[in-house]
Design a protein around this nucleic acid. Sequence first.
DNA 1: GGTAGACCTGGACGC
DNA 2: GCGTCCAGGTCTACC
Length: 312
Amino acid sequence: MSARLRITPPADYLFRRDCCSYGYFLLAPNVWDPATRTLTRPFLLPGGRAHAQIAQPSDAPGGAVTARVDRDLDVADRAALRRQIRRMLNLDDAGVAGFHRADRRWRRAGRGRLFRSPTVFEDLIKTVTSCNVAWPSTITMNRRLCEVIEPAFPAPGQLARRRPQTLRSRCGVGYRDRRIVDLARLITSGRLDMQWLEDPATPDEDAHRALLDLPGIGPYAAGNMMQLLGRYGYLAVDTETIRHGRAVLGFAGSDRAVEKRVRAHYDRFGAHRFRSYWFELWAHYEAKHGPAWTWEPRTTGTQFTAAKLNSD
DNA sequence: GGTAGACCTGGACGC
DNA sequence: GCGTCCAGGTCTACC
């Protein structure tokens, strides 16, 4: 019993490049296999959980993206899976051409789309688990959330029911326990509307302000969530940004001074600031360790950020 | 508005 | 093997 889904991507979409474009492709429940160039993970569908192996068999830009699923799918399941994969691979991003006009460096390489999660909520929790922690701990937290709560990644209702102490002791999320449960409860109670956040009609400033009001979401996390919502006009400044400002852009001075200069530097890219920043950073990593799609999740993939990559 | 310190975990380091 | 230190972003209290 199995099913197959075929998705037609934009003409410039290259799966191995565009799937491996942001660190979340290395976080559970995502499993990237460099040998087969496939991404495998379970999805929560109306009819229950289903595992899908996603690939682009032609391995050429614009080739059909396929998903091999481990069970039959009814109409509702197929629609939900298609919607989640399209979000995850950012296939409906209409701003790529505009980005390439704003920053011509990436037009030839085709860079433009950033990988994200099938749902905004998964992106939100992944962002919280990436704050104030080294990358290996982020990997562990996401793995345990999938092992303990839900293999296809916990849904808001599943986390809203949990005691914070359970997340702390069994998932290793530390002091983020209460914040994660509070975020889930904000959604299940209807006080936080994820569709409103993702709606292009919602002004960027309103979405950004709403994110900053959430528990566990500060300036960095709000900036990161903005790009995960397809709003690329904000930077997500963390220690790696400062390192990039010093090492690559050549800025000097205090952290605060470097941040100010980094922000001014990317202002020229307007609504595409984050993409220009991020692909610069990503290119720096790939120059040292090869294309991200070749990274072994258990080795290079566990240390792809910051000091470790830069020190090699 | 700016700053100091607490929060929690895992890795690095010294013994 | 054990203890100590440090990195990492957010939040709160305080000035």
